[in-house]
């Protein structure tokens, strides 16, 4: 197979040695079917064992390997080197996140937001599993299924300037997951989740940049989830205004 050589420029930041990040350049021979992650693995195995990044499944589902590639947040396991032929490929840690080392970012903020939206089924009354499944129609499933496909890769946060300007913003993935539970016919936790997603730093912070949905590698469309949450919240508020005594 034909081999080309890619020039890879990677952000290095080693907190024990460096006060500032810098770029380091590597030359990587590659075949047509190699992805950026393969190049990083080549560098780590053959050139520089200290290059640090996360990865695992190399098939676009574990969500570990996000990075900014030529400025765009992408999964390194799903970005082919040949798409950058003839150019230097710049790989940086995902924007907006604090960097722990090289390409490894701190995602504790998201982990906290995830807990905040209560990403579990809330029911008034549980039925024991022995009695079988909660029935759900294909249409009911479709109302939330795309939003349940979020792999928590954080690309949407890296793409969101609103999050970049205000890290308190609940953000795309967490809202998509909140909406996933709100729309699940088995869930009865709307009243618990609505105040959370509609608070000051919740969905109303979103001013529709739309880049979250552009970069999502799983077609989740978090922007859609945020706007639908706004619509649900607005209609709910209107309803309680018009019919103060119940009427849900």
């Amino acid at each position: 197979m034909s081999q080309d050589v890619a020039t890879i420029r990677v952000t290095r930041y080693r907190p024990e040695k460096d006060s500032k990040p810098f770029f380091q350049e590597y030359k990587v021979p590659y075949r047509h079917d190699m992805v950026v992650l393969d190049a990083l693995n080549y560098i780590k195995a053959e050139i520089d064992g200290s290059l640090t990044y996360r990865w695992s499944c190399r098939m676009g589902v574990c969500g570990s390997c996000g990075a900014n590639i030529d400025g765009e947040p992408k999964l390194t396991c799903a970005s082919f080197l040949h798409d950058f032929k003839g150019r230097t490929i710049t790989i940086e840690p995902m924007t907006h996140f604090p960097v722990i080392k090289d390409l490894v970012v701190d995602m504790e903020d998201f982990m906290e937001k995830l807990v905040k939206i209560k990403p579990w089924i809330i029911r008034d009354k549980e039925t024991p599993p022995e009695q079988g499944e909660y029935k759900q129609s294909a249409q009911e499933l479709e109302r939330y299924s795309q939003f349940s496909s979020c792999i928590n890769c954080m690309l949407c946060y890296a793409a969101c300037p609103i999050y970049g300007l205000n890290e308190k913003f609940l953000g795309p993935a967490a809202t998509a997951l909140a909406y996933r539970y709100i729309e699940d016919s088995r869930d009865q936790g709307k009243d618990v989740r609505f105040p959370i997603v509609h608070e000051m730093e919740g969905v109303w912070e979103c001013t529709l940049v739309g880049e979250c949905s552009v970069v999502c590698p799983k077609g989740v469309d978090p922007m859609l989830a945020i706007q639908k949450t706004k619509i649900l919240g607005a209609t709910n508020a209107l309803k309680s205004l018009l019919m103060p005594r119940g009427g849900h």
């Binding site: 579990w120 022995e130 079988g132 909660y134 029935k135 129609s137 699940d184």
Partner: peptide, 22 residues
């Protein structure tokens, strides 16, 4: 079966038959 239904109760988005079963 119990474990599968438990997982369904916890929210796993299983594919469904027309009658709503997994």
């Amino acid at each position: 079966p119990r474990e599968s239904y438990q997982l369904e109760h916890w929210g796993c988005p299983f594919s469904r038959d027309p009658d709503g079963r997994i």
